[in-house]
């Protein structure tokens, strides 16, 4: 991988590791340390979520103008979409989330993954040294190393033969080691918790504009992710991070509704590409979205851009 990708991840790991060590030193188990770190990260971006929530609520105020636009351009969907977007930016409201927070999550997830597999594993299992342990072996299954003995992944099984196991493993809620790949019943439990929390958090985060098909797709997505997750062999701690994030989202959404009140559903033209071809939509997501991508690819950039020069001055 290019160093431009590695460097920020390494930097994030170097940032997180001392924080986790600090939480561990004040007496928290490693698993709780991960949960606390995740909560801290989510609290740090809480203002962003509040901002988005408020922006979605503002939608109710411009509902009449939106109705007028829908009536005016009901035969011209791209135009309607543009005019709606202009209306949003004029009134400084927007029902949609934004791309940046989602893109930013990806390096965080990758660095948690690598940190659990490498640096944190060395920290927990080897007192900071790389013992050359295979990634899917928990510390609890490792014998106490005599002196500076270094385990070798190739000869690992013969190394541990006949030795007392359970050297410096640390259990957390039934996980024998958060840095090891979860297996068996634990894996199933974590997957169920992950899928459940993911579904619940996407339900409460459903934008007021989502239609039935989209809701179904969003709910099915975590199930699809599971198939990608298994070959990646995520350490159990990664599930802790993920589940904590989802639960945080749930609580946060509940809290925002308590403080600011509900977002009433407002009819918004969604530029979901399947709209013009309702027929192909029912035949499955892959096909529908394929058609959509070709449709959008073939569509020439829409004509009405007369006002864009004025607007571009204050775009941010």
């Amino acid at each position: 991988m290019p160093s431009a990708v590695i460097a920020p991840i390494q930097w994030l790991i170097e940032l997180f590791l001392p924080i986790l060590e600090f939480f561990h030193e004040i007496g928290l188990p490693w698993g709780v340390a991960i949960i606390v770190l995740t909560i801290c990260l989510r609290l740090a971006v809480l203002p962003l979520s509040v901002k988005s929530f408020k922006s979605m609520r503002g939608l109710q105020a411009i509902a009449p103008q939106m109705k007028a636009l829908q009536a005016k351009y009901k035969d011209d969907r791209p135009r309607l979409q543009q005019e709606t977007m202009k209306l949003y930016s004029q009134h400084k409201v927007n029902p949609f989330g934004s791309c940046l927070p989602i893109v930013v999550q990806i390096p965080f997830l990758i660095s948690f993954y690598y940190m659990l597999r490498t640096d944190l594993k060395f920290e927990i299992c080897g007192g900071g040294r790389d013992l050359g342990l295979p990634h899917d072996v928990g510390c609890g299954q490792v014998p106490n190393p005599p002196g500076d003995f270094i385990y070798n992944a190739q000869t690992f099984t013969s190394d541990i033969a006949g030795k007392t196991l359970g050297g410096f493993g640390e259990t957390f809620l039934g996980m024998h080691d958060i840095t090891a790949v979860a297996t068996g019943g634990l894996l199933i439990l974590l997957l169920v918790l992950y899928v459940g929390s993911q579904m619940a958090s996407s339900l409460v985060n459903m934008p007021p504009t989502a239609d039935k098909n989209q809701k179904r797709l969003m709910l099915a997505l975590p199930l699809v992710f599971v198939f990608f997750l298994i070959p990646i062999k995520p350490p159990a701690g990664l599930f802790l991070y993920w589940i904590t994030t989802n639960v945080f989202t749930l609580v946060q959404q509940w809290g925002l509704i308590q403080v600011y009140g509900h977002v009433k559903p407002v009819e918004v033209p969604e530029d979901e590409p399947e709209e013009p071809k309702k027929g192909s939509r029912s035949s499955g997501s892959g096909k529908a979205s394929g058609g959509a991508a070709t449709a959008t690819g073939a569509t020439p950039p829409p004509p009405p851009r007369k006002r864009k020069r004025k607007r571009s001055g204050r775009r941010r």
């Binding site: 901002k51 950039p301 829409p302």
Partner: peptide
């Protein structure tokens, strides 16, 4: 640059490539 602009502080809107500065 567009992804950076697509953040909770911006208000979005219609912004084609041809409007880039």
């Amino acid at each position: 640059w567009r992804i950076l602009r697509c953040n909770p502080w911006s208000h979005g809107g219609y912004d084609p490539v041809s409007a880039q500065r």
